[in-house]
């Protein structure tokens, strides 16, 4: 095997890993702060992909309207996320965990059927803008520009989240709120706003991932649950609530899948879950999580 082939596999693995991370990061962030398992995360991701299709159609469907879609669709679902948090989740914080789970699960059913109603069962194509659709040669291998951009975005997301949570005042408040909600409230901090913000941010990230993946595949029914389950696996592997854990787990899973494909066809879905199984047996709280009894 040539060096360029290996490079090719690495880039392919990192691309899918980073796309997965974009989804998983929002999921684990919401879990870490709100202590809510957001089943609707995948549905929001899918919804954003559909919205990006419509935005582009609205602006004449030229490839360069993708930029508009990239701006508008994530914001649209972020607004939806804020509404969901305020009207559906907020009344649930004092209730049993089960009720919160049911709300986010019910949202999956509602959102998925709504997309089916609004956009129909047929897959939709989303085109890439010209700048991103080319290929460039590096070290004897050629890569699609878009792949490299996606990897970059993944790393930037990680860096951005880390800086935000560790180096900003709001980030400190959020981490304090996740650690000890009562104490933080007692210090006069409005957790309601924090919760809305985080849920909305999570939705925005899901939306961004949805729009980013749209040109690579097609926008279609079912894309929500497959990504959600993979993202959950990554979150479990990395440790629930740990963004850094999700990041490393995404890379691990992405690379593992692309290298695994060399030997066994069809291992792609299984690999993630095999890793997860091993992690669950050895460290049920994940690689970077803390055991909580």
């Amino acid at each position: 095997m040539e060096f360029s082939d290996i490079l090719d596999i690495i880039v392919g693995g990192l691309t899918s890993g980073m796309l997965l991370f974009m989804v998983a990061a929002g999921l684990t962030l919401v879990f870490g702060v709100l202590r809510i398992i957001n089943f609707s995360h995948g549905a929001i991701y899918m919804l954003a992909a559909y919205i990006s299709y419509s935005v582009m159609a609205l602006f004449g469907n030229a490839p360069n309207t993708y930029w508009m879609a990239l701006l508008i669709a994530p914001i649209a679902v972020a607004v939806l996320g804020a509404l969901i948090e305020v009207f559906l989740l907020r009344p649930m914080y004092n209730r049993e965990h089960l009720m919160q789970l049911l709300v986010t699960y019910a949202l999956v059913l509602v959102i998925v059927d709504a997309t089916k109603f609004l956009w129909g069962p047929d897959p939709k194509m989303v085109l890439l803008p010209d700048i991103l659709s080319g290929r460039i040669a590096i070290l004897g291998a050629t890569f699609s520009v878009y792949s490299l951009v996606l990897i970059l975005i993944g790393f930037l997301t990680m860096a951005g989240l880390w800086l935000f949570l560790n180096k900003t005042k709001l980030g400190h408040i959020i981490r304090a709120g996740a650690f000890d909600p009562e104490m933080t409230e007692a210090l006069g901090i409005n957790l309601k706003f924090i919760y809305t913000f985080i849920f909305s941010l999570g939705a925005w990230m899901a939306g961004l991932a949805g729009v980013l993946i749209a040109p690579l595949t097609t926008v279609s029914q079912g894309m929500d649950s497959s990504v959600l389950l993979d993202a959950f696996a990554v979150v479990v592997i990395g440790g629930m609530g740990s963004i850094g854990g999700a990041f490393l787990a995404s890379i691990l899973v992405g690379l593992g899948n692309s290298f695994g494909l060399l030997w066994i066809a069809g291992i792609a879905i299984a690999f993630t879950f095999i890793v997860m199984a091993v992690v669950l047996v050895v460290r049920p709280w994940g690689l970077f999580g803390r055991p909580i009894k």
């Binding site: 965990h97 389950l229 959950f232 979150v235 299984a270 997860m276 055991p291």
Partner: peptide
Amino acid sequence: LRAAKLYFAILTMAISQLLFVL
């Protein structure tokens, strides 16, 4: 059962999905 509450919920879901993939 090494985990509790929400973690338990996620673990059960993860394992069932493992079986699904299998």
